[in-house]
Amino acid sequence: MDLMALDLSVARTGVPVLQGVNFTLAPGFALVLRGPNGIGKTTLLRTVAGLQPPYAGRIEGAEDRIAYAAHADGIKPTLSVAENLGFWAQVFGTSGITPALDAYGLHDLADRAAGTLSAGQKRRLGLARLLVTGRPVWVLDEPTVSLDVASVAMFADVVRAHLGQGGSALIATHIDLGLDATILDVGDLRARPPAPGGPEEDFL
């Protein structure tokens, strides 16, 4: 099943930031979002993830299929690495955190309190959470922040494996992950300010 955005507009605190976003993301493929800072990439991803409603247009094929990873990793510092992952595995009704620990080299850290990890290790833990969700569509917002070169390669391998298993990924990133991905530049899709005399003004 494809994830589709049809003439989608998204708004941040009520102000439209992007309009006319169209894409189709088929299983096995990745789509990389590019665009200058502040253009609305995060807003677009939050809308696709269902955290906020579209301003206009629609999204199809997102229902209960998306695993979202934002800037914040949602890690509890007083829980151990394994407890953090195990919690999300239980929430998403999957079992077995070992593949996720293996994929990001977190095995030796499994019993460490997550609060004692370095920024890059925390990020790896945050990304490992995607594997335990068991969801096919990954929506990732700047996933490589604070990762070193080796960890970025690790992440790219995981995404490649995910795509190979029929998953798909929508990634906002500025670095080249070496993935065979379509690039969607949202820089040209900046929303125009509402025309004077538009429906809002009539309403007021």
Binding site: A49, A70, A72, D73, G74, W88, V91, F92
Partner: peptide
């Protein structure tokens, strides 16, 4: 606390 560390966003996109 869940808001600050981002878990609330993740819980909102979870099946619960």
């Amino acid at each position: 606390l869940d808001w600050e560390d981002g878990s609330l966003d993740l819980l909102a996109t979870a099946p619960l």
